[in-house]
Amino acid sequence: MEPSHSDMPCPGGKKSHVCDVCGYASSKLGALKVHMRTHTGQKPYRCDMCEYMCTNSSALKLHMRTHTGEKPFTCDRCEYKCTSSSALNAHMRTHTGEKPHVCDICGHKFAERGNLKIHMRIHTEEKPYRCDLCEHRFAQSGDLKTHMRTHTGEKPFTCDRCQYKCTSSSALNAHMRTHTGEKPFTCDICQYKCASSGALKIHVRTHTGEKPFTCDRCQY
């Protein structure tokens, strides 16, 4: 069947099909239809191997590689392989050092747009991930996952030198320094060194005079 006039690209690439919710525009009606699913929540494409659902066939094709193990994109500088061109482009920046995504508030640069999006929550104070067992909220899904272990008691990270167990890789890394004696955190005012960022933060208050903890019964 021949496409209708409205389904065909507009002459000269003119974007005549406009979303009446956010202003998104496209020269193709089909692209607008797919876009509208971001507003309606419609996900007509479903994986037949798991519960995954998505808005378009391309996303489903990409997802299927998580089941098949297919990694058709290969780095020409190392042995890295991945499932998508966007993942390969992000990986290539580990070789080039390129950081094209810049925060327009503080100037921090990032290799991936997703990392910039997460960083922006520092400025907006957005915390979209909420614990359903308490009132804690988090800017990153990984932080919520770690937090949930305080409720479940799960401690999947184990020290190979002693019986210490903990809820996160960062806590395990900090613990390992009790064995190695490593002190990677250095005060930029004096020569003090310590094993954790938290200890350094407390030390810096000896220089700044900051006293954030207040007694609610006296002026201490």
Rank of each mutant, 00 (worst) to 15 (best):
M1Y: 11
M1W: 09
E2Q: 12
P3E: 14
S4A: 12
H5T: 06
S6C: 11
D7K: 11
D7F: 11
D7A: 12
P9I: 01
C10K: 15
K15A: 09
S16N: 13
H17D: 08
V18L: 15
V21S: 03
C22G: 13
Y24K: 09
S27C: 05
K28L: 15
K28D: 07
L29N: 10
G30M: 10
G30D: 12
A31S: 15
V34H: 09
H35A: 07
R37S: 14
T40M: 08
T40R: 11
G41T: 02
P44G: 08
M49P: 00
C50P: 11
Y52S: 09
M53S: 12
C54V: 01
N56A: 14
S57H: 14
L62T: 14
L62Y: 07
H63I: 03
M64H: 06
R65F: 06
T66I: 08
T66P: 04
T68S: 15
K71F: 04
K71E: 14
T74W: 04
C75P: 09
D76E: 13
D76G: 05
R77A: 06
E79G: 08
E79C: 02
E79P: 01
T83W: 00
S84N: 12
S84D: 14
S84G: 15
S85K: 13
A87H: 11
L88M: 11
N89K: 15
N89W: 00
A90L: 02
A90S: 14
H91R: 06
H91C: 09
H95E: 02
H95V: 05
T96D: 08
T96P: 06
G97P: 03
E98Y: 06
K99T: 05
P100Q: 07
V102R: 13
C103I: 08
D104F: 01
I105D: 03
C106Q: 01
C106H: 02
H108M: 14
K109H: 00
A111F: 06
E112G: 13
N115G: 01
N115K: 09
L116W: 04
I118Y: 11
H119W: 04
R121P: 08
R121H: 08
H123A: 07
T124I: 08
E125Y: 00
P128G: 08
P128Q: 10
Y129G: 09
Y129L: 06
R130S: 15
C131H: 09
C131N: 09
C131P: 11
D132P: 04
C134F: 04
R137I: 03
D143R: 04
D143P: 00
D143T: 04
L144M: 10
K145E: 11
T146C: 10
T146V: 14
M148V: 03
K155D: 08
P156C: 07
C159I: 01
D160T: 02
D160C: 00
D160M: 00
R161T: 03
R161M: 10
C162F: 03
Q163E: 15
K165D: 06
S169F: 10
A174R: 00
H179M: 03
H179C: 01
T180S: 14
T180P: 03
G181K: 08
G181R: 07
E182F: 03
F185W: 06
T186G: 01
T186W: 02
C190W: 03
Q191A: 13
Y192P: 02
S196C: 07
S196T: 14
A199T: 12
A199V: 04
L200H: 04
L200P: 11
L200K: 06
K201W: 01
R205A: 02
H207R: 10
K211H: 05
C215T: 06
D216F: 05
C218T: 02
Q219V: 07
Y220G: 05
